[in-house]
């Protein structure tokens, strides 16, 4: 298990390099994405924008599931997963919100529009930033419950945001997969490879962050125990009353 992490890290890096080459066609090997006819090279940002968006939604979904599991079971592992996916999700969502306008400016002629997908993603980002702020500002034992409740509230909010903005016209291109749009099979291939690479990358960061979170909790527990028991494991006088009494004396 200890070796799995570095092996996975190396594999992910190789996959990311390969996907980068396929998307930007730096070295011409079979399967690189062709240049789009009307938009030109600007279109290549699509290979980062869309996989980041899919990864964001995946991470936020995992966050919601972990939050609900935590509320039901009070399982600390679920809470650690929620912390990790919330943080990494905000990072990927930021990538989506930054790459979108970079593409929109030359293609639509505007940086931003209050379109349904753009606005919902922005609101989702705002909700999860407030989630992280709540986590940061409350450092007591109740934080996991409060944060999990907020995650559920955010999930309830997203469909309402979507419908409220859907009522206005929408400008974002229709989804190319499963929607009305069409896409060159070579582009689709590169897109899926990039998505795989991004998912592995997200998983790698989550994994690393999860290990950090577990270490942090172990340190916290050890410190709490030490303040209770004293440095040598001997009960400190003040904490003596908290020790369980032998059965006969209760």
């Amino acid at each position: 298990m200890k070796r799995a992490f570095p092996i996975f890290a190396v594999l992910t890096t190789l996959l990311l390099v390969y996907a980068l080459n396929q998307a930007l066609s730096i070295v011409h090997i079979p399967g690189v994405a062709p240049t789009e006819r009307t938009m030109g090279d600007v279109q290549r940002i699509f290979y980062y924008h869309v996989p980041s968006a899919w990864t964001t939604f995946l991470l936020f979904s995992v966050n919601l599931v972990a939050s609900v599991v935590y509320l039901i079971r009070r399982n600390p592992v679920a809470d650690a997963v929620a912390v990790v996916t919330g943080e990494v999700g905000v990072v990927f969502c930021t990538v989506v919100l930054v790459t979108g306008p970079i593409w929109a400016r030359p293609v639509w002629g505007i940086w931003w529009t209050w379109d349904v997908r753009l606005t919902s993603t922005l609101v989702l980002w705002l909700i999860y930033v407030s989630y992280l702020v709540l986590r940061r500002f409350s450092d007591s034992a109740q934080t996991p419950v409060l944060a999990a409740a907020l995650a559920v509230f955010g999930a309830l909010d997203v469909p309402l945001v979507y419908f409220s903005i859907w009522f206005f016209r929408t400008q974002h291109p229709q989804p190319v997969i499963g929607g009305g749009g069409s896409i060159d099979p070579r582009m689709l291939h590169v897109l899926l490879i990039n998505w795989l690479a991004f998912s592995c990358f997200a998983f790698l960061i989550c994994w690393s962050r999860y290990r950090l979170e577990r270490l942090r909790r172990e340190v916290e527990e050890a410190q709490a125990l030490e303040s209770l028991l004293g440095p040598e494991g001997v009960p400190a006088p003040a904490a003596g009353s908290k020790m369980p009494l032998p059965r006969g004396q209760q």
């Binding site: 909700i127 709540l134 007591s140 409060l146 907020l150 909010d157």
Partner: peptide, 23 residues
């Protein structure tokens, strides 16, 4: 009620309330 348990709770309330209240 949620922000009662946080540091600087007066600032916390709008930070939590406004994103959810957007719709």
């Amino acid at each position: 009620a949620m922000s009662l348990r946080t540091r600087s709770r007066e600032i916390m309330l709008p930070l939590l309330l406004f994103p959810i209240s957007i719709p």
